[in-house]
Design a protein around this nucleic acid. Structure first.
Length: 359
RNA sequence: CCAAGGGUGACGGAGUGGCCAAUCGUACUAGACUGUAAAUCUAGCGGUCUUAUGACCUACGGAGGUUCGAAUCCUCCCCCUUGGACCA
């Protein structure tokens, strides 16, 4: 079994911190990690991508928790801000997550699913306040982009509880590793800086945020804070063509990739390049592109550098890359599609779809 | 609770008695052009019917009213923004 730290480094954008993780591993403590999701719309490939660390962690004996953060949805007014809708959505979400885990070859029955509302106790709210007491208002406000908000807008007071609650979740669940997409890093920092007496600072690991498939509204992308840029470019559940959902049929996958923004020679902020590097090449050692002989025949890509070089020199055309990516994703999501074939899950999916539209 | 300013189609934002189904921009959809997408151009973009001209229905926060006629005027209500009052 390969070294866990190396594996995680390969799969993620950052580990806070590597030293702390090494210490944790050396301590022989039981590893527990969690990833929380605000329940909202349909589950897409970005969610799937963020679960890429579950397999190696499990292989090293970690207990995995998927946290269904229904209170966060409620606070953020998702799905009409109705607990009833959110509860239905949570059922869908759990299945969708199980489906996503299958794509990574994870035994989903070993993953623990917890719904926040079924789990919170008075002790939890005490922890929320403890975190809030140790966090300045300005930091809380700066952290609001984890909820897709900015303090500048007129915001309901409830949103201000969001970061403290997310940090408190970590302590409440007693996990020693928190993992999430890069867009959630500020919540983890709040937790790490909260210094709650009697609690360990959590190690936190952050995965890459996959870009949305469509052309960014501002192009070319101005230089700036890379994290802000990534958040701005991330795929959106509310724009169906910017994301591929886990239950999308192969023809839908093909049509979305076909419509995707993909400028020739341009490898920065090119979603197809982004997906190839961060989804495909992180998971597989090689990526094979079948292409007609007239365009060069079958191509095997071994690493991101090679991909970038070929693409920038126009030895790999957007069309061929798209075709390769399409095939790969169709295959990758196959287990999820299978999982969702049953009648009860189709029904949940339908419910979910109508809920998202009505909203 | 008070004051001022607001609530228009997916969004931004015009329109302040008939020429308004509502300018314009963005987004979206379709087609043309590219071995992809983008950009560009053309068309569509509340609903139903019609080959089409057109007709009808539903619409400008909600409910009433004035008028031949209202998104536009009046009344009441709801909500939002900013400031203030109360708590002191």
């Amino acid at each position: 079994m390969a070294n866990l730290i190396d594996q995680l480094e390969h799969l993620t954008e950052e580990i806070l911190t590597k030293e702390e993780l090494a210490e944790l591993l050396a301590s022989k403590k039981k590893l527990t990690h969690y990833i929380g999701f605000e329940i909202s719309g349909l589950v897409h490939i970005g969610h799937v991508s963020s679960l890429n660390v579950v397999k190696p962690l499990q292989d090293h004996g970690a207990q995995s928790i998927i946290w269904l953060a229904d209170w966060h949805s409620y606070i953020n007014n998702k799905l009409g801000g109705s607990f009833e809708n959110i509860r239905t959505a949570a059922k869908y979400f759990e299945h969708a997550m199980r489906a996503a885990l299958l794509c990574h070859g994870v035994d989903h029955t070993k993953v623990q699913f917890l719904l926040a509302n079924d789990t919170y106790t008075m002790k939890y709210w005490e922890l929320v306040m403890a975190v809030a007491k140790n966090t300045t208002l300005s930091r809380t406000k700066r952290s609001l982009d984890i909820a897709g908000r900015t303090a500048g807008d007129s915001i309901p007071t409830a949103i201000l509880f969001y970061p403290s609650m997310q940090a408190a979740d970590i302590f409440f669940l007693g996990v020693n590793i928190a993992h999430a997409g890069m867009d959630q890093r500020k919540a983890h920092i709040v937790a790490r800086d909260a210094r709650l007496p009697g609690f360990q600072k959590p190690v936190s690991i952050h995965t890459h945020i996959l870009q949305g498939l469509q052309k960014p509204s501002i192009w070319p992308i101005p230089e700036g804070d890379p994290l802000q840029t990534a958040i701005a470019l991330k795929m959106s559940k509310s724009k169906p063509d910017s994301a591929i959902f886990i239950h999308d049929e192969p023809d839908v996958i093909a049509s979305k990739i076909k419509k995707a923004f993909c400028p020739p020679k341009e490898t920065k902020h090119n979603p197809i390049i982004d997906w190839t590097i961060n989804l495909i090449l992180k998971r597989d050692k090689t990526f094979t592109i079948e292409r007609p002989a007239q365009y060069g025949g079958t191509l095997v890509i071994n690493n991101p550098q090679q991909l970038i070089a070929l693409y920038e020199q126009e030895q790999l055309s957007p069309v061929d890359l798209k075709n390769g990516v399409t095939q790969w994703i169709q295959h990758f999501l196959e287990p999820a599609r299978e999982y969702f074939k049953s009648e009860d899950k189709q029904k949940l999916l339908e419910q979910m779809r109508s809920m998202v539209i009505t909203r």
